[in-house]
Every structure is written in structure tokens, then in C-alpha cells.
């Protein structure tokens, strides 16, 4: 009896210690992240300029490539749809608008994941030879992808103007509804920034999974449904997978608001916000905790 009480007390102490450590780490991670933005504004801007202007510096049509490279996929999917090879369901709006509205959100998520998850490999030389806060690289990567997203969004609006498309009042919430997608993509990027160095195979498997995720997220097609957040397919397994794919909800939320003016119940939005924010918070704490170990492994 006495032994059980002692064991319970030890477990309680261990649990309290673990909780306190986790809370300290979480608090430190967010504080350090915000402080880093304030103190490293100039370095962030310089890195951003470097990445934006040198990416296509040797090309005479740099803006064209920024737009054309991703939109090349749109041309292919559009051809497949309009030639009848691709069955996309009833999208109720011009398919090009539906497709571009979904694709730009996917690129936004994927590019944030990719650019955040590759910061160790891309900047290994600078990281190993200069002491600076790695949050700078994360913020720069996010800002860079936000700029590309803005360019893509302008193209979407041009397409909408061409089709004389009328937006709904809920469309105005689009920037706010984009945040959960941003939070979740950053979270994935932070975790895989570490795993890309410590467990290369795991990161490579996930890269392949991201390609698969694209097809199990309703971007190219529209599932038939009564409730937009519970997609229904003839194949119940596929319906189940798509329903539990987080990107389904993260992409449907801003896209459906923009092109259909549809909003889920407020409680649904709150749940998506909270889950994605907690994911980012935990990923940031994990990234900070594993920082030294990851840097040490950069040379191995």
C-alpha cells in the first residue's frame, strides 16, 4: 500500500516537472520568436531581398517565371478538364476559378512547408559560421512565400474579372481564414526541418506523401456533399481519408468563403484555428529544443 502511494507521488512529481518544463519551453519559444522579429528586422529584409532578387536574377523574365512555373500545372489540369478526361464534379463556378483558387492555396501551404523545412540544408554554411537567431530564417521563408502568394492571388483576381465573377460578402474574411493553413504549414515545416537532418528517410517519405496529399485534398475536383466539410464519395474509404485529411478543411475554409461565400459554423472555425495554432506552437517548441542537436548533425 505504502509503495503504491510513494510510486504515485513520484509519478505526480515527474508529471508536474514535465508539464512545467513544457510550459517554460512553450513560453520561451513564442517569446523568443516575437523578440527575434523585433531585433532582426533588417537581417530579415536583407535575406528576403537576397532570395527574391537572386532567384531569377539571371533571367530577363523573372516575374513571368514566378507566375508561369506554378501556373503551368493549371494549364495541364484545365486541358484535362475541358477535354473531358477529368471528371471534377459540379463546381458551380467557372472551373478555372475553382482550380486556381484551390491551387494557389495548395502552393502556399506546400511552399511554406518546403521553404521552412529546408532552412538547415539551405543555410548550413551561414548557420555553422554565424551566431544569429534561426527564427530569422523561418520568418524570411514565410514572408517570401506570402509575397509569392500575393502575386498568385492577383492572377486569380484577373481571372475572376475576365469571367465577370461576383464575390460574396463572406469573401472579405479570406485573409483571416487563411491563417490556420499558414499555422499548420509552418508547423509541418518546423518539424521536418529537424527531421530532414536527423532522419532523412522519414523526411523523404513525407515529401512523397505531400504529393499524395495533393490528390486526396479536394483541389482539382469537388466532392458531392450535403455538408461541405463532410465530403461524400462512392468509395467510403476515400471519403473517410479525405475527411480526415487536415488540408481538406484548411483549404476548403478560405476557398469556399472566397468563391461560394460559404462559412462553416463558428465553432468549426474556432476548432480549426485552435488546432492549427497549437500545432505551430508545439512545433516551434520542438524546433527550439532540437536546435543544438540538429546543428551538430549538419556536418555528419
Amino acid at each position: 500500500m505504502g509503495k503504491v502511494v510513494v510510486n504515485s507521488a513520484i509519478h505526480a512529481i515527474k508529471l508536474r516537472k514535465f508539464t512545467n518544463t513544457l510550459l517554460d519551453l512553450l513560453q520561451y519559444s513564442m517569446q523568443a520568436f516575437i523578440k527575434s522579429i523585433q531585433t532582426n528586422k533588417f537581417l530579415i529584409v536583407e535575406l528576403l531581398k537576397q532570395n527574391l532578387f537572386t532567384q531569377y536574377k539571371q533571367s530577363k523574365f523573372s516575374l513571368f517565371w514566378i507566375i508561369f512555373n506554378p501556373f503551368f500545372q493549371i494549364i495541364i489540369w484545365s486541358i484535362l478538364h475541358y477535354s473531358g478526361f477529368l471528371s471534377v464534379g459540379s463546381v458551380q463556378v467557372p472551373y478555372l476559378i475553382y482550380l486556381v483558387a484551390g491551387m494557389i492555396l495548395w502552393w502556399f501551404a506546400f511552399n511554406i512547408y518546403e521553404s521552412v523545412s529546408t532552412i538547415y540544408s539551405k543555410y548550413s554554411g551561414i548557420i555553422l559560421e554565424n551566431r544569429f537567431d534561426l527564427s530569422v530564417l523561418i520568418i524570411e521563408a514565410i514572408l517570401r512565400q506570402m509575397i509569392f502568394f500575393m502575386i498568385h492571388l492577383i492572377v486569380l483576381f484577373i481571372i475572376c474579372i475576365y469571367f465577370k465573377f461576383h464575390f460574396q460578402s463572406a469573401s472579405i474574411l479570406y485573409p483571416v481564414l487563411l491563417l490556420p493553413l499558414l499555422f499548420f504549414s509552418v508547423a509541418l515545416g518546423l518539424v521536418f526541418a529537424v527531421w530532414r537532418i536527423l532522419a532523412v528517410d522519414l523526411a523523404m517519405i513525407f515529401d512523397k506523401m505531400m504529393a499524395l496529399l495533393f490528390f486526396i485534398t479536394p483541389i482539382l475536383y469537388k466532392p458531392t456533399y450535403d455538408n461541405p466539410y463532410k465530403p461524400n464519395f462512392d468509395n467510403p474509404l476515400l471519403s473517410y481519408i479525405i475527411r480526415f485529411n487536415p488540408f481538406t478543411h484548411l483549404i476548403l475554409l478560405p476557398r469556399n468563403a472566397l468563391i461560394y461565400g460559404e462559412l462553416p459554423p463558428i465553432i468549426g472555425i474556432l476548432v480549426i484555428y485552435i488546432i492549427s495554432f497549437v500545432c505551430m506552437y508545439l512545433a516551434l517548441a520542438y524546433f527550439q529544443r532540437m536546435k543544438f542537436k540538429t546543428i551538430e548533425k549538419l556536418l555528419q
Binding site: 537576397q50 532578387f53 537572386t54 536574377k57 539571371q58 554554411g125 551561414i126 559560421e129 554565424n130
Partner: peptide
């Protein structure tokens, strides 16, 4: 020489 960008 580290931290330099050859394109700039």
C-alpha cells in the same frame, strides 16, 4: 568569405 552571395 562565408555569408556572401555571388549574384549580388
Amino acid at each position: 568569405r562565408s555569408g556572401f552571395n555571388p549574384l549580388l
